[in-house]
Computed example of a mutant assay.
Amino acid sequence: MDWKLLIPTTIATLAAVIGWVVAHKLNAARDVRNKQREIRLKYLSEAYDVFIELGRNVDILGNYREVERAISYIHSYGNTKQVELCDKFVNDIALSGSANHTELVVEVRNFIRSELGLRVLSTKLNLLKVTPKEK
Rank of each mutant, 00 (worst) to 15 (best):
E107G: 07
I11N: 08
S98C: 01
E68I: 12
N110I: 08
V58T: 08
S45L: 04
A12V: 03
I71T: 07
R37Q: 12
K42A: 05
K25G: 01
K88T: 08
E103K: 12
Y73D: 07
E107C: 15
V83L: 09
T13R: 02
V108G: 01
V108D: 05
A94S: 12
T80L: 00
I39D: 10
L128Y: 13
G19R: 13
V90S: 12
L104T: 10
A12L: 02
R33M: 11
D59S: 12
K129H: 09
L54G: 05
V90Y: 07
D2L: 02
L41I: 04
L26Y: 07
W3M: 07
F51E: 00
I71D: 03
R56Y: 01
E68Y: 09
I60D: 02
L61T: 06
L95Q: 12
H75F: 10
L116G: 14
E134K: 15
N126K: 06
A94Y: 14
V105Y: 04
H101C: 15
D92E: 13
I112N: 07
E103L: 09
A29Q: 15
K25D: 03
E134P: 11
T102N: 04
A94L: 11
V105T: 09
N100D: 12
S45I: 03
E68L: 09
R113I: 04
E66Y: 10
R119E: 13
V21I: 13
M1G: 14
T123I: 08
N27Q: 09
D87S: 01
F111D: 15
Y48M: 04
V130K: 11
L54K: 02
